[in-house]
Amino acid sequence: MTRTPHRIRPFSASQRLPATAAPSEPMPPERAGARLAEFIHRHPRLLILTGAGVSTDSGIPDYRDVDGGWKRRPPVQHQEFMERAATRQRYWGRSLIGWPVIRDARPNASHAGIAELEWRTHCHLLVTQNVDGLHQKAGSRAVLDLHGRADRVRCMGCGLRLARDDVHARCADLNPAFLGHTAHSAPDGDADLDVDFSGFRVADCPTCGGILKPDVVFFGDFVPRERVTRALEALRACDGLLVIGSSLMVYSGFRFCRHARDWGLPMATLNRGRTRADELVDLKLDADIAGTLAVTLASL
């Protein structure tokens, strides 16, 4: 199966979901868990797609509110990062604060529940939009990191791979004056820090002097074709699709709902608030993720 890769891009204004007067009340976990257990009983072999909502209980913020809108400024764009030195200075400067939040995060009950679903053979493949590696730390084995991993850095010139901690340490050594800043952390190793970054010294590739970039798919970049192909082949072999903790506001995740609909596969979503696929799914659960999964596992 060969598919054309798609750029990661924000949900456009013309595609936004209609506004509501107030967010809906979440479904009680007891009810949501029972309904999800019924879905899994009927469709026992699932592709599970996860998003930022799975990691918020681990202290990693998400980007969007319950209506799918931005909670904070949109993330860095790939082309801007590659073309503007000032953008790289700002990104790596903020990462001195933001990266340790991801590095030191620990799996929460939602990660553990999803790993348990795999152990019980209900998860054929876990496709995650998150870059924090927490699913693996929780014990999940069949994991596809759709957008890459934040703990790795790649040279955009020679392709050298480095550990994020090593690059972080070099940036800290080059910029001791920036270590005194504090700010709220943001998703994906960023931070809400607004200072003058013009004097920040960015660590370049130690081999060729090229641009170092986290080995993740930034907005405006392409998801590698082989990852998309593997995920779609797994989806086609499954009984259904379960989306957990994602608003599906970017096409890289929403595409799997489109394909599931085209292939006649049942779909369920477990997420606080609305998702882009609300009109496509067979079961929508607006509920607490960890609590719902606990009830589901006890009911299977």
Results as ranks from 00 to 15, higher is better:
residue 2 T to G: 12
residue 7 R to Y: 02
residue 16 R to C: 01
residue 23 P to T: 03
residue 27 M to T: 14
residue 30 E to G: 01
residue 32 A to H: 06
residue 33 G to K: 10
residue 35 R to V: 00
residue 41 H to P: 00
residue 60 I to M: 11
residue 64 R to Q: 11
residue 64 R to F: 04
residue 67 D to A: 14
residue 68 G to I: 02
residue 69 G to R: 15
residue 74 P to N: 02
residue 74 P to W: 04
residue 77 Q to P: 01
residue 81 F to I: 04
residue 81 F to L: 14
residue 84 R to W: 04
residue 87 T to L: 03
residue 87 T to H: 01
residue 94 R to L: 01
residue 96 L to S: 04
residue 98 G to D: 08
residue 98 G to Y: 11
residue 103 R to Y: 02
residue 111 H to R: 11
residue 112 A to K: 15
residue 116 E to F: 02
residue 119 W to K: 13
residue 119 W to D: 09
residue 123 C to K: 00
residue 124 H to R: 15
residue 124 H to D: 13
residue 127 V to H: 07
residue 129 Q to H: 11
residue 129 Q to I: 12
residue 135 H to P: 02
residue 146 L to P: 01
residue 153 V to L: 07
residue 157 G to I: 05
residue 159 G to R: 08
residue 168 H to T: 02
residue 170 R to F: 04
residue 176 P to F: 05
residue 178 F to C: 06
residue 179 L to E: 10
residue 180 G to P: 04
residue 180 G to V: 05
residue 195 V to C: 09
residue 198 S to G: 08
residue 199 G to S: 14
residue 203 A to T: 12
residue 206 P to T: 12
residue 211 I to Y: 01
residue 214 P to N: 06
residue 216 V to W: 01
residue 216 V to L: 03
residue 216 V to I: 15
residue 216 V to Q: 04
residue 224 P to G: 09
residue 226 E to K: 08
residue 231 A to K: 12
residue 233 E to A: 14
residue 235 L to S: 05
residue 237 A to Y: 03
residue 244 I to H: 01
residue 245 G to Q: 12
residue 245 G to R: 09
residue 248 L to S: 08
residue 250 V to Q: 05
residue 253 G to S: 07
residue 266 P to W: 10
residue 267 M to P: 05
residue 269 T to G: 08
residue 269 T to M: 08
residue 275 T to G: 03
residue 279 E to Q: 12
residue 280 L to V: 12
residue 280 L to G: 09
residue 282 D to N: 13
residue 284 K to T: 12
residue 284 K to Q: 13
residue 285 L to M: 10
residue 287 A to V: 00
residue 288 D to Y: 11
residue 288 D to H: 06
residue 289 I to V: 13
residue 290 A to M: 07
